[in-house]
């Protein structure tokens, strides 16, 4: 092959990759947090009796889940300004990933909500709790325990989706790796290290979620 591996350039620029990774994590953290808030509201809307509440929520989930996230990223950054909505690169990407994760988390949360026995709500009502108190003290805590196993893969997917921010020059991990690649021509080395960082980070995320799952599990 005649190609000798040489990681020296990559290690020299390793700080840049770590800064990129930190930004990736930050983008994912903020977006998933906002997305979780959206997802929770939408999940309750999806199980509402009234069609006026249910239909808009279902439409939101369907539309977002049927769009590639890259299309959303490009639309928000290039098309929205033409329509008078001007956002910075970071804000635009966080907005997109929040709305995107909101749709996925809404589906995950909905599945967790419908598996909670109706009797628990009735027991809450019977002691005089208001519907909102029942949601905050009983329904949501139980729902989160129900969904933790499937939440893990969703969170990891969403973290990996931050790499699409490279398309609009957000200096996250993929963008930084491409920069090093272009400047150094060390293609293989650069992408091996960047991949290693993604795999390591996702493994840590998965371990954290498993830890949370064990800590919160209901004893039986």
């Amino acid at each position: 092959m005649g190609y000798t591996l040489n990681f020296a350039v990559v290690w020299r620029n390793f700080d840049q990759l770590l800064e990129g990774l930190a930004l990736s994590l930050g983008l994912a953290f903020v977006s998933i947090l906002i997305g979780a808030a959206i997802g929770l509201l939408v999940a309750f809307a999806l199980i509402a009796k009234s069609g006026w509440i249910k239909r808009p929520a279902a439409t939101y989930v369907t539309v977002i889940r049927n769009l590639p996230i890259l299309v959303l990223v490009l639309f928000a950054y290039f098309a929205l300004p033409q329509m008078g909505v001007r956002l910075g690169k970071l804000e635009s990407f966080v907005a997109v990933l929040s709305i995107y994760s909101g749709a996925y988390l809404a589906e995950v949360f909905r599945a967790g909500l419908i598996s909670i026995p109706k009797g628990l709500t009735e027991a809450g009502l019977a002691i005089g709790l208001t519907p909102m108190q029942i949601r905050t003290s009983i329904i949501v805590p139980l729902m989160l325990r129900n969904v933790l196993p499937s939440l893990s893969s969703t969170v990891i997917s969403l973290f990996k989706d931050t790499s699409l921010a490279a398309a609009i020059a957000v200096p996250e991990l993929t963008f930084e790796a491409r920069k090093i690649n272009v400047e150094s021509f060390r293609v293989i080395e650069t992408w091996i290290v960047a991949s290693g960082l993604y795999v390591a980070t996702c493994s840590v995320l998965a371990a954290l979620m498993r830890f949370a799952e064990r800590r919160l599990s209901v004893p039986r």
Partner: peptide, 15 residues
């Protein structure tokens, strides 16, 4: 509702 108490067939304790 708080004026009455109720016990259910399925217990319905918060797990």
């Amino acid at each position: 509702r708080a004026l009455t108490g109720m016990a259910f067939q399925q217990f319905n304790l918060f797990p």
